[in-house]
């Protein structure tokens, strides 16, 4: 195996594109190194992107923020302005692993690992975050929800890697929340999860919403019916019931060591309802 730590995006894409064998991007490494130790992964090349300029920066852009691909969870958690704008995203990132893992793990890595249970992904999908991708043919932007295509698989082409993720500006009376269910209080992979991002008008009526679900299908789901249940409501009980029903209906989970189909269907609805209430309350505080 070779290890390379290029200082430019161009060099990194060239290394990745030219590698004849298995090449992997190394940012936080918290999934990659585990796969190398226990998962039978034996890459021929690791491209460490942390030495590339901008990879570790959170930069204001058009009223939103651009988060470099190597920004760790701990660094995200310490960024007060990002947390104020997208609290659901930051809380989702902070749920990934332990304090030690937070010191390394990145959102971009969480996304490219392409686990349907990845904590930050439903929150990013709800936030309509846009990934910027560098590749042999230059840069392109892609909505986060189009990156994972199946467990462990992404739409990135050979030589491509994510350089940053953009979180747009939003009105004052808008916010988001992310909840997951785990059997302990920490250290587990989500059994199921829900992210809700919403905007309220001055009367407190929801005018816009995005609802995403994790660990209940092969990829994170963006559930339009669930969003529709909220839009036009003040998140009264009937709207929340409709939200829950839409989420349960959208689920296509499996039985596995972490949970059952039935459990995931039921609890996804519970989490979506609770997350919607939290997002509503946060939006109210911001307006």
């Amino acid at each position: 195996m070779q290890y390379a730590a290029p200082e430019t995006t161009a060099e990194a894409t060239r290394l990745l594109a030219d590698s004849p064998g298995t090449a992997r991007v190394l940012a936080g490494g918290t999934d990659l190194l585990v796969q190398m130790k226990f998962g039978g992964l034996a890459p021929d090349l690791l491209v460490d992107i942390k030495n590339i300029k901008g990879m570790r920066d959170v930069t204001p852009e058009d009223g939103g923020f651009r988060v470099g691909a190597a920004v760790s969870g701990a660094e995200m958690g310490e960024h007060k302005a990002m947390r104020a704008l997208w609290p659901g995203v930051v809380e989702a990132v902070e749920l990934i692993g332990s304090t030690q893992v937070q010191g390394r793990a990145t959102m971009a890595g969480n996304l490219c690992n392409a686990s349907p249970a990845a904590d930050s992904v439903p929150a990013m999908v709800a936030a309509n975050a846009i990934a910027r991708i560098a590749g042999p043919d230059g840069e392109r932007d892609c909505p986060v929800q189009d990156i994972p295509t199946a467990p462990g698989k992404t739409s990135l082409q050979k030589g491509e890697f994510i350089t940053s993720i953009f979180f747009p500006a939003r009105p004052d009376n808008a916010s988001d929340a992310y909840l997951r269910f785990i059997p302990r209080t920490e250290m587990d992979i989500a059994v199921c999860s829900a992210g809700v991002s919403l905007t309220l008008d001055t009367n407190g009526t929801c005018t816009d919403a995005r609802v995403s679900l994790g660990a209940v299908a092969a990829t994170v789901l963006l559930v339009q019916d669930a969003a529709n249940a909220l839009i036009g409501s003040k998140l009264d009980d009937s709207a929340l019931e409709a939200l829950g029903a839409a989420c349960s209906a959208a689920c296509n989970p499996i039985d596995d060591k972490r949970g059952t189909i039935e459990f995931r269907r039921d609890v996804t609805a519970v989490l979506a309802k609770r997350a919607a209430k939290i997002a509503q309350s946060r939006a109210g505080e911001r307006s």
Partner: peptide, 16 residues
């Protein structure tokens, strides 16, 4: 700790 940040050293490459 690496540069003041708490990490699990089993998940850090020495090369880094």
């Amino acid at each position: 700790t690496v540069n003041g940040r708490l990490v699990a050293s089993c998940l850090v490459l020495a090369a880094e």
